[in-house]
């Protein structure tokens, strides 16, 4: 099937199999390997991207379903080489270790901050429920998102 998808501001058209997940499409067809597949069944959140502004698990969306939509992946977060405030906050607060869950964490954080511009710790933890991190114990991820909120609000 032919699909046309806008990813990080660029439009792509591909002829793809319906069974291709959006995560695979991003990784295999567009070489955007920042979107990681940790469980492939929407349990871990590593594959989180935003689709028309909403965080979704790209392993559980068919690429054909994304036809006509606007996707942002982790590769699209930095602008002109400058890290997005969420990315910068993760670095500042040591919100990552092995880095594998990190793209998903950053992308879901964007959704959390969209809905909760001044999130409480509870809002953040509630918002991170769909994303596993096995390295950080979430402590510094929560701190990172708190810092990102402050930076964005400033």
């Amino acid at each position: 099937m032919n699909v046309t998808i806008t990813v990080n501001g660029k439009q792509f058209t591909h002829d793809i199999e319906p069974r291709l997940s959006l995560a695979q499409y991003l990784r295999e067809n567009l070489d955007l390997t920042g979107t990681h597949i940790g469980c492939d069944t929407s349990g871990c959140g590593a594959c989180t991207i935003t689709m028309d502004g909403n965080a979704v698990k790209s392993c559980t969306v068919l690429a054909v379903q994304a036809d006509g939509s606007e996707i942002t992946t982790i590769e699209g977060m930095a602008q002109n080489g400058e890290m997005h405030p969420i990315q910068a906050a993760f670095k500042e607060k040591h919100g990552l270790q092995c880095g594998f869950c990190t793209p998903g964490m950053v992308m879901v954080a964007a959704d959390i901050l969209k809905n909760y511009p001044n999130p409480s710790e509870e809002d953040i933890r509630h918002g991170l429920k769909g994303n596993f991190c096995r390295c950080t114990g979430y402590h510094n991820i929560v701190k990172s998102i708190q810092l990102a909120a402050e930076t964005i609000n400033d």
């Binding site: 982790i74 590769e75 500042e92 040591h94």
Partner: peptide
Amino acid sequence: VKRREDARFLKGMGKY
């Protein structure tokens, strides 16, 4: 000291 690894991981440029 902030980690020098982080930029690549945060930008989705890690190479697993």
